[in-house]
Design a binder for these strands. Structure first.
Length: 256
DNA sequence: ATGGTCGGCAACCGA
């Protein structure tokens, strides 16, 4: 089984890249973030023509998540918070008896801002949601754009970023709670290599060419899932075409 | 060479 995640930064702008990649890689499940499209405008038909079911929640201009899959998503849930979400950042369900959670964590703007506090609250709420509703010995994958890098080897300028948004100890401590609960960073299960990034800021001139990136997209799995992962790789196909995304595809093979 | 990020969506916000 091939499982992947990709921040599209607009699914409509990235549709040629996305369809090309689906044709080439034929993943069983693909989690998408920042679709930036309202549900009535979601490009369902071309995806169905490629043999995919799609579950999605969008909103105007910002955010938006989707799960594409060859088998339909069962028991879909579209809200993290019990009272319902104001922002489209969460979608979960079950496929072939594997629980899937796809998330787009708030970016956080600046340390100390209201948006930063919301990011911390969101991460804590995601942790509590998982701890209250899932078991660490059951099959669960949590994938998406976490907007947090964990270690020096995961960013191109650790000393420059330390204490800033995306590389702040409070964010990292909240990420640490996921690992303590029992989730495994599947990328780090397979390699200790540094400078392996999934995101390059558009605003850095030639940032991709100079590999000035961050590893902020993850596939996390409970131990039974991590044990079934035979490989994981960063696929920069999304950077090769005319309208590159600022993120890449992150893909893992699972023996299920 | 005389600029220099994107996308959404209609003036800027968010990343």
């Amino acid at each position: 089984m091939k499982f992947a995640t990709f921040n599209t930064n607009s699914i409509r702008a990235r549709l040629p890249i996305l369809l090309d990649w689906l044709k080439r890689e034929s993943p069983d499940i693909l989690c998408l973030q920042e679709t930036k499209v309202q549900d009535q405008d979601f490009p369902l038909e071309p995806l169905e023509q490629f043999g995919y079911h799609a579950a999605f929640r969008g909103q105007k201009s910002y955010n938006g998540v989707a799960i594409l899959s060859k088998s339909p998503l069962q028991d879909p849930r579209l809200d993290l918070f019990e009272e319902g979400d104001e922002q489209a950042r969460f979608i979960s369900g079950t496929i072939d008896s594997i629980s899937i959670i796809n998330i787009y964590v708030p970016q956080g703007s600046q340390v100390g801002s209201d948006k930063f506090q919301y990011k911390l609250k969101w991460l804590q709420s995601l942790h509590d949601h998982i701890a209250n509703r899932y078991e660490p010995d059951a099959p669960l994958l949590v994938a998406g754009d976490f907007n947090v890098a964990m270690e020096d080897r995961d960013v191109y300028d650790p000393d420059g970023f330390r204490g800033g948004v995306g590389f702040h100890p409070e964010e990292q401590a909240l990420m640490g709670k996921f690992f303590k609960w029992g989730l495994v960073d599947i990328f780090r299960k397979h390699t200790t290599e540094a400078e392996q990034y999934t995101f390059w800021d558009y605003r850095i001139p030639n940032g991709f060419k100079r590999n000035m990136g961050w590893r902020i997209d993850y596939i996390l799995g409970t131990v039974p899932m991590a044990e079934k992962s035979s490989a994981i790789w960063i696929d920069t196909h999304a950077r090769g075409l005319k309208k590159p995304s600022d993120h890449t595809f992150l893909v893992t093979s699972l023996n299920v």
